[in-house]
């Protein structure tokens, strides 16, 4: 059985892809790069960050390339003024509310799109305190961009532990555990998947953090040892 192929044009390049391919994947085929933030090859795409929006001729609104399937005969522009403006505004809002100092990819995008986050100066920033409740990793949600990847790998996309999810709403949304309990009191198994998929410095291995702080290696081991193990001499 042969797959049905469709033809479309991305930034002037004609391309043929199997029906059902997302615009993002089709663009990859056409060697056109679309910036992404929440999209991750191994988690379910949700179109949350809207950074991958593209202009499809005839469509009423910009389309999130990571979730929208390419249509036969579509003419897609990935870097039109409308697209650039949308991405710039998004990046400016992110850069003005979230600490992106440990996110080089985001910083590069802010520079590439000639963002001016200062125009939102004086606005509220997300500045929750760093959560240090276990020997494995730290959670600094002032750096969190709400990509949802940590929640996804904690749930049906990898580990099936369901320790994390969103809490709150709007500006106060934050990744949290049940009743904001310390991770050691949740279903968390410390698999580390969430740290691995975090696109910013929000989730960081405690050892990495302590070394950055200049703590001596022997002390680092002492500080990150699980309590149960200590008794087993």
């Amino acid at each position: 059985m042969s797959e049905k192929y469709i033809q479309l044009t991305i930034d002037g390049t004609p391309i043929s892809v199997p029906a059902g391919t997302t615009i993002l994947d089709a663009a990859k085929e056409a060697d056109v790069e679309i910036p992404v933030l929440c999209y991750f090859a191994h988690t379910t795409a949700n179109g949350l960050c809207r950074l991958c929006v593209v202009e499809v001729e005839g469509a009423r609104m910009l389309q999130a390339a990571c979730v929208v399937a390419a249509q036969d005969g579509a003419v897609v522009h990935t870097r039109s003024p409308k697209v650039e403006r949308a991405r710039r505004t998004l990046l400016e809002m992110l850069a003005s509310t979230v600490d992106i100092s440990e996110s080089p990819e985001l910083q590069a995008l802010v520079a590439e799109y000639e963002c001016f986050p200062e125009r939102f100066e004086g606005g509220k920033k997300r500045q929750p305190v760093v959560i240090d409740d276990n020997p494995v990793y730290l959670r600094d949600y002032s750096q969190c961009v709400m990509c949802w990847r940590c929640v996804q790998v904690c749930a049906d996309d990898a580990q099936f532990t369901y320790a994390l999810n969103f809490s709150g709403r709007g500006f106060d949304t934050q990744i949290a555990t049940f009743f904001d309990k310390p991770l050691t009191e949740t279903t968390c198994v410390f698999c580390g998947n969430c740290i691995g998929v975090c696109p910013t410095g929000a989730l960081k291995a405690k050892r990495e953090y302590l070394i950055e702080q200049g703590v001596a290696p022997e002390q680092v081991l002492e500080l990150t040892r699980l309590k149960g193990r200590k008794n087993r001499t």
Binding site: N165, S167, R169, F179, T186, T187
Partner: peptide, 26 residues
């Protein structure tokens, strides 16, 4: 808190999800 745990069991939905839903609504 305990009721929230029981609701999670009853609906077979993770506790963190129940908390997420409950905190979303004012």
């Amino acid at each position: 808190e305990d009721s929230m745990r029981q609701i999670a069991r009853f609906t077979k939905v993770p506790e963190s999800d129940i908390y997420g839903v409950a905190t979303f609504y004012a």
